[in-house]
């Protein structure tokens, strides 16, 4: 967890790296009940413009939330906000890096409003998700 005294504009949040696996996509489909064939049916997906299966956007977005949880713990879970765009698909075999940078820290009497730029990119440095995360931290 990031110590409040360490919080500075421009600082990087600790990154998270994940390898996208078809097995995880299949299991995510079960958990989220999203069985869209573009995620789980290789034969179907091959015939679409995407040319193969892709991960659920919400699965990849979970990695950003995971990074924010690691950095801000309870504050993120009870008072966090995400605004993102899905820019490109994540495919089985891709290595996704979730990263973030603190853009602004607005201090008030008992809270700090921390605004971060967040990003998921693949192994080719292509943006998969871009956006911002905001968290209200006590202290």
């Amino acid at each position: 967890m990031i110590n409040l005294s360490q919080l500075k504009e421009g600082m990087d949040l600790p990154e998270i790296k994940k390898v996208v696996r078809q097995e995880n996509i299949n299991r995510y489909a079960e958990v989220s009940r999203d069985f869209n064939p573009i995620h789980i049916d290789a034969d179907y997906a091959r015939q679409t413009p995407l040319g193969g299966t892709v991960a659920h956007g919400m699965l990849i977005l979970a990695y950003i939330s995971q990074m924010m949880t690691a950095a801000f713990e309870e504050s993120w879970v009870s008072d966090g906000k995400l605004i993102v765009r899905f820019k490109a698909p994540a495919r089985p075999g891709d290595t996704i890096t979730a990263s973030g940078k603190v853009r602004r820290v607005e201090k008030s009497e008992d809270r700090n409003l921390v605004n971060c730029e967040v990003l998921c990119k693949n192994q080719n440095d292509e943006a998969v998700i871009t956006g911002e995360a905001v968290v209200r931290v006590k202290g």
Binding site: N24, R27, S32, M58, Y63, W76
Partner: peptide, 23 residues
Amino acid sequence: GVVEETSHLYWGTGLVPPMAVAA
């Protein structure tokens, strides 16, 4: 398990990851 989340906040605590609610 699926998202490979290891945070102590969630495992065995009964706290639900907000992204699980969103999903």
